[in-house]
């Protein structure tokens, strides 16, 4: 980075070119910031290594158990189901906890004010965080991918079932990430952080169980494809509005200028007299502590 910043021989080595590509100008600034932090993050490194270790242990167990050809196909399916549990564990349990911490940090460490004055919108913050969450999920999946290939070679697993289960796990990760981000954005102090952090872990655990169970069902009951597709559509239709509401809530919590605390806008003339009083959000049901007359009186009687 420093090489690139200093401008000396920028873009000459392959490392520089790779860096230029990774941190392209078109990237969301929050995404590029979090990408840099993720690379140095101990949480990510440890989780990635744990995923690899668990996959190796599963493979070892498989090798020890697979002694005859008659067990071949069944063991392939079992191995694959273990792998998706590991993926769901890292994607649905670890990532939302990380995103919760990142979103809460923006508020608690007062970095949000600097980010907002730099012109970054809450939507950009959330999309940046969500993208980094999904990137982490893909990186964990990349660690599992060679083992899934082994399970496929062992037979007993359908390719379409693998793809659909993979998509399902990523969707589970997306849902838990949105939940983690939203709860993190709602943090205001140590107490709310402790309560919402606990809720996040609980919610993530439930989503992990749901995702892992659905993945098992999909792998073992793949023969009944129409039922699986219908179930998938129903789950999507149920979860999509919930996720949209959660994102809306997170956006509102990341706004510095909350319109709900200022239900009026008073325009003054050159002499400081009230020229126009514009009540805002009349239909929101919000009640100001002062009435219109009181506000005008307070301003004009100063």
């Amino acid at each position: 980075m420093n090489r690139a910043a200093s401008g000396d021989q920028a873009g000459t080595s392959w490392l520089d070119r790779l860096e230029e590509m990774l941190y392209s100008d078109r990237l969301n600034p929050v995404f590029s910031r979090e990408l840099r932090r993720m690379v140095k993050s101990r949480t990510f490194a440890i989780t990635f290594q744990l995923v690899l270790l668990l996959c190796w242990l599963s493979y070892l167990a498989l090798v020890l158990n697979t002694s005859t050809g008659s067990w071949y196909m069944e063991q392939g399916l079992t191995f694959c189901s273990y792998l998706f549990v590991i993926l769901a564990l890292s994607s649905c349990l670890v990532i939302p906890v990380v995103l919760f911490a990142l979103a809460a940090e923006e508020r608690q460490e007062s970095t949000l004010e600097m980010v907002v004055t730099a012109g970054i919108t809450p939507e950009q913050i959330l999309s940046g965080l969500l993208s980094i969450g999904m990137l982490q999920a893909l990186l964990y999946a990349s660690a599992i991918l060679p083992f899934i290939a082994i399970s496929y070679v062992m037979q007993g697993v359908d390719l379409l079932a693998l793809l659909l289960t993979f998509g399902l796990t990523l969707f589970g990760s997306l849902a838990s990430s949105v939940m983690g981000m939203t709860l993190g954005a709602c943090v205001r102090g140590p107490t709310t952080r402790a309560i919402l952090g606990g809720l996040n872990v609980l919610g993530s655990f439930i989503l992990f169980i749901l995702t892992a169970s659905c993945a098992q069902f999909m792998l073992y009951q793949f023969d009944d494809l129409p039922s699986i597709m219908a179930g998938g559509v129903c789950v999507l239709a149920f979860l999509a509005p919930i996720l949209a509401i959660l994102l809306g809530l997170a956006i509102n919590h990341l706004r510095m200028t909350d319109p709900m605390i200022k239900p009026y806008r008073v325009l003054l003339d050159e002499n400081g007299d009230v020229k126009k009083f514009i009540p805002r959000y009349q239909n929101s049901g919000y009640q100001s502590a002062l009435t219109e007359e009181e506000v005008i009186r307070e301003i004009t009687n100063r």
Partner: peptide
């Protein structure tokens, strides 16, 4: 340019990366 009385610092970031983030933001 606004410098608040207390501003947080991101962990796992060096000086150039910090400035780079804000330069991108602007």
């Amino acid at each position: 340019g606004f410098m608040p009385d207390s501003f947080g610092k991101y962990s796992n970031m060096d000086v150039v990366e910090y400035l780079d983030f804000f330069a991108r933001a602007y």
